[in-house]
């Protein structure tokens, strides 16, 4: 096969290239890849610690704000989490413990998001046509003039 020498040379070059690529690949595959499936298992832990939870649920608010908590629990907003109208706990109590006044929208816009009568809401859900429900213009904190948001039934 003396005349095939060039073929062997080319084949050799090819084998070397493939070997280098396979070797490199071996170093580049992440260690936890393939443990439980074709993914990097370390990511599961990373996802569990991806961030600090921002919302804590109404129970956490009750520890400092017991009065409002009790009033809410006895009224018709008892299923409404405090954080729906007030901000998430993480925006109120920072990680280092400092307490910041949470942003709260006291205008009718916030109430209207749930209680303005629009097509789509279940019929039995308490909703009003604001312009007919309120005497005078619908602006500012008009809902709060008659309703206590923690126990809204007037």
């Amino acid at each position: 096969m003396e005349h095939a020498r060039h073929v062997f040379r080319v084949a050799f070059v090819l084998v070397v290239v493939l070997a280098v690529v396979s070797l490199a690949r071996g170093f580049l595959v992440p260690k936890s890849y393939g443990l439980y499936g074709p993914y990097r298992y370390d990511n599961v832990k990373e996802q569990m610690n991806a961030r600090t939870p921002a919302y804590a649920g109404a129970g956490a608010c009750g520890e400092c704000h017991a009065d409002e908590f009790k009033k809410r629990a006895a009224g018709s907003h008892k299923t409404v989490n405090c954080e729906v109208c007030h901000a998430a706990l993480a925006l109120h109590v920072k990680e280092d413990g400092t307490v910041v006044a949470p942003p709260v929208d006291r205008s009718f816009t916030l109430c209207a998001r749930c209680h303005r009568k629009i097509i789509g809401r279940p019929v039995k859900f308490p909703q009003v046509v604001l312009e007919q429900h309120v005497e005078g213009p619908v602006e500012g904190k008009v809902c709060l003039q008659c309703h206590d948001p923690h126990s809204p039934k007037p």
Binding site: H3, A4, R5, H6, V7, R9, V10, V13
Partner: peptide, 18 residues
Amino acid sequence: ALGTYDQSPEAVEIDHRA
């Protein structure tokens, strides 16, 4: 050329087959 300079008819025939 990978250092080979074989231009004989046999080599060319091998080339064609390849």
